[in-house]
Simulated assay, not measured.
Amino acid sequence: MDVTTRLARRIKDLREAQGWTLDALAERSGVSRSNISLIERGRSSPTATVLDKLSAALGVTLASLFEAPAAAAAPPSPLARVADQPLWTDPASGYVRRNVSPALPSPIQLVDVRFPAGRRVAYEQAARDDEVHQQVWMIDGVMTLTVGGAAWRLEPGDCLAMTLDAPMVFHNPGAREARYLVALARRPRPGVRRSS
């Protein structure tokens, strides 16, 4: 299954599992109903910013949107072969992300990112039911990450930890591609009721 079809099915499955209409997801995410409809039919390649808005509204991480749809998934394997890891390119910035983690239920997800020189992606970080913690470990190149009002320049070997609860900007100020690993972990917030 190609990544556009995988995204389309996964977003639709998650929306329907909530019992939401397209209008309800549009209202919760700030993404237009028509855009969501195009995405769910595999006729639009959403940007990273749009996927982040949808994932926040659906109560999952962005990386979770690349998991195989429940109806199509065989029993999950503890091994994720590189050839089977979903690879996606953001049409706006050209950054390429590979979901590395196996499709097992796990509070941890790993994502390998290649980010083109001079490019930037901004995330609004809508409220989520769960606390999502993220660490970015630089493998090659340089990146500037701005989280809320704080900015950090990351070079190979550097690792930055943050909670996904503030606007973030990823920027590659270098003259060549940057590569980094993102580790995400979810933790339920105390006292937050889960939507069904």
Rank of each mutant, 00 (worst) to 15 (best):
Q109V: 12
R43F: 06
V111L: 10
G30W: 02
S34Y: 08
N172E: 06
A103H: 09
D13T: 12
G59R: 01
D13A: 15
A92L: 09
A72C: 13
Q135V: 15
R81S: 11
G148K: 00
P69E: 07
A56C: 06
W88H: 14
F66Q: 09
L110D: 03
L38F: 13
P107C: 03
E67I: 10
D13E: 15
Y123R: 04
L62V: 13
A63K: 05
V96F: 02
R9K: 15
P173D: 07
S32C: 07
R194K: 11
S45A: 11
R186P: 02
L62G: 06
S64M: 14
S32E: 08
Q134A: 15
K12P: 04
G157L: 10
K12W: 13
S32R: 08
L38Y: 12
I36H: 04
S64P: 11
A71V: 15
P107S: 09
S77F: 06
T49F: 03
Q134R: 07
V136W: 02
P107Q: 05
Q125N: 08
H171A: 11
R120M: 03
F66L: 13
I36K: 04
E155F: 01
S93I: 08
D13P: 04
P78E: 13
K53L: 06
P86M: 13
M1K: 07
H133S: 11
R81L: 14
Q85N: 14
T163P: 04
V50M: 00
T5Y: 09
R179W: 06
S77P: 10
I39H: 09
A56S: 07
I11W: 05
V3T: 14
P46H: 06
P75V: 12
R119Q: 15
S44H: 06
A178N: 09
R194H: 00
L65H: 05
S32P: 12
R98E: 05
V31W: 02
V192I: 11
F170H: 05
A83T: 15
T4F: 04
D158L: 02
C159L: 12
V111F: 06
L164T: 02
A71S: 15
A57S: 09
D158R: 00
M143W: 07
Y95Q: 12
L51C: 03
G42T: 08
S34C: 09
L79F: 15
T146H: 02
E27L: 14
A175V: 14
P156L: 00
A83V: 15
L65D: 04
T163M: 08
S29A: 12
L7N: 00
S34W: 07
A74D: 14
V60M: 03
R10L: 04
E40K: 07
M1L: 10
L14Y: 05
P167S: 04
V31F: 02
T47Q: 06
P102V: 02
K12L: 13
E155C: 07
E40S: 07
V182G: 08
N35R: 09
R9L: 14
R43D: 12
Q135S: 15
P190E: 10
P116M: 08
E177Q: 15
